[in-house]
Design a binder for these strands. Structure first.
Lengths: 340, 340
DNA sequence: AAATCAATTGTTCTCGTGCACAATTTGTTT
DNA sequence: AAACAAATTGTGCACGAGAACAATTGATTT
């Protein structure tokens, strides 16, 4: 049975060579005679050797530092959740010699640039980034590449960049899910609004993806439903909504600002609302019945996986996938508790 | 800052004692003078010492065996998924000296008894059980208790037994979720069927819980909907359904046998179906539109967590919660792929 | 004061891997 | 064959915790 755990010592004994030789064969470094190499390889093959990662990582204290570039999170529930995931992972890996250095940016383009730059100049061993501003990011990523620093992206995917892994949702699919749900909720001739609330909408490809997915679904299913897309730069602009609410059956909000819509809908209107993220205001409105469905974007997992997949690469040098897609969790008032 | 990683050596130096004494204080074993104990404790307090688990587990090869008592899974997709989670976890912990011994039972009461007994006589260090038959289980659990063998339950909760941790869903809530979803799907005067398909229904408290949750929700929300509960011992009995389908608006299936219902519904009937588990047949019917919603019971996580929480206890002696509730994932055809 | 025992403290080895260095063998040149 | 370099192989130590064992101190008895 291949059930036992063999050590390098065992292998050395079986192949009649020294521990050093086995080590050299495994890591193919140094010089080994053909004869010895063959014997060792045969044994390795036979017993299906798997190194003891515990012993290995006990030795391998390289003390790496990971820079974390995310939005300022003290005032923001969503990013605070994400930071919580990051910190959980930090705790777990501290004993592996991993430490984190946070670079939080306030939500302006300049500050994003500044903090990201600082992170690069800090010369970390790896970087975790929540990239919000597409254009600015490209140049910054390029600097990381030149320095040969591996980096992971969370929340917002950016194509054509040599990141290690993107952790987040398939936004196209996310939009499709929203559309299917909306279709079960709404069955009349009034129209459906797709609303974006984002200052830098042009840079936010993921919002555009959600919209596209939403439309794709309706088209695929031959559902002829009136759709109107609205893009607001600022929360205040939502007052414009009032006029069209009477002829609206449902609203799909592409961001976590879903609660804004709920606020603008009067108590008496029967408008179905689908949006994103379990931030307290959203959850509150959901429990009051003003938001029907929220799609959970798993900020905690994003943070946790973002770090741990970087560590997998730094310490264990494990292969990591290019994309780690998180589930598209559908949340209603009755199951919201188990995602909080 | 308490950011550094201190070793027992560091602590010994700081407290001006030997490494042995520090070790004795930490594990409070052996004899230590009050004076020395106080000094060491002060240092421990100050630096917030956390032992290096890697080094610890390198040494602590106790080679534990965990017995796994689950249904025969070669022919059963759900339990195969669960076994997959168990095996993933087995792989991960093999290097910690953990090995598993499987005791699969065919789905009869006698065989459950027999295999479970064998597992106990095997004298494992811990046991993971998917208990199906309530009555028989009590006696068997008692035998484990007497032998002082810790055990975890998955899938089916059994109260008043001193298991370590139950891993599974909150079935009451699960029923509530189904009810809320059904209520969005169905809005007419026809009735809703709650269907159980289970040979040993009396022993299956979790199915009864689902039913109760379903009813609770409707009552809480003052929804006056006709409900009829049907219990089938065998798949064949479902032919009886035919007669009542015309006056049925929706069906809530409490087991993974949801596909049976889909099979019995003709193509033309517009009956909404909510059921459990992403087994291939169910997924197939969902894609065809014959099943509307499936609630995912996370068999993989159940298996994985079931083992890993046992290991946490065996190796690290960490505190583990009495109940680990898995999320109540709502699955529709558009997001089914991300749960497979 | 020497002997004995208990209480306390200090030392050393182990776990499995990785790496640096030491030791050995082999081949080549004079 | 001696001298030397190159190729190959063997050995020792470090990582941090745990546990067995050895050593020291203090107290008690004869």
């Amino acid at each position: 049975m291949g059930k036992e755990r063999y050590t390098i010592r065992d292998i050395a004994a079986m192949a009649n060579v020294s521990r050093g030789t086995v080590d050299r064969v495994i890591h193919n470094r140094g010089t080994v005679s053909e004869d010895a190499a063959k014997k060792v390889k045969e044994v390795l093959e036979k017993i299906n050797y798997e190194p003891n990662l515990i012993a290995r990582s006990l030795k391998a204290h390289k003390d790496s530092v990971i820079a974390v570039v995310i939005p300022e999170y003290s005032e923001d529930y969503y990013w605070r959740q994400c930071a919580y995931g990051i910190r959980t992972s930090e705790k777990e890996f501290r004993q592996f010699g991993i430490s984190l250095e946070y670079f939080q940016y306030s939500k302006t383009q300049e500050d994003y640039n500044k903090k990201f730059s600082e992170a690069i100049d800090f010369n970390p061993d790896a970087v975790l980034i929540a990239p919000v501003y597409y254009q600015d990011s490209l140049e910054l990523f390029h600097r990381l590449e030149k320095k040969n620093i591996p980096f992971n992206l969370i929340n917002t995917p950016i194509e054509d960049v040599s990141y290690r892994t993107f952790i987040g949702q398939d936004y196209r699919k996310s939009g499709r899910v929203a559309a299917q749900l909306m279709n079960t909720l709404v069955r009349n001739e009034k129209k459906i609004l797709v609303i974006h609330v984002e200052q830098y909408f042009e840079n936010s490809t993921h919002l555009q993806e959600k919209e596209q997915g939403f439309k794709d679904y309706l088209q695929d299913k031959n559902i002829s439903q009136d759709i109107e897309v609205l893009t607001f730069r600022d929360a205040k602009e939502l007052t414009d909504l009032k006029a069209i609410l009477p002829e609206t059956a449902g609203i799909f909000m592409t961001t976590s600002k879903t609660h804004l819509v709920a606020e603008h809908i009067g108590d008496n209107e029967d408008i179905k609302v689908i949006g994103y993220d379990l931030i307290p205001k959203n959850v509150q409105y959901m429990k009051e019945g003003k938001i029907n469905i929220l799609i959970h974007q798993n900020p905690i997992s994003q943070g946790y996986d973002g770090i741990s997949m970087l560590v997998e690469h730094l310490i264990y040098k494990r292969e990591v996938p290019k994309v780690k897609l998180l589930p598209l969790d559908i949340v209603i008032s009755e199951n919201v508790d188990c995602y909080l």
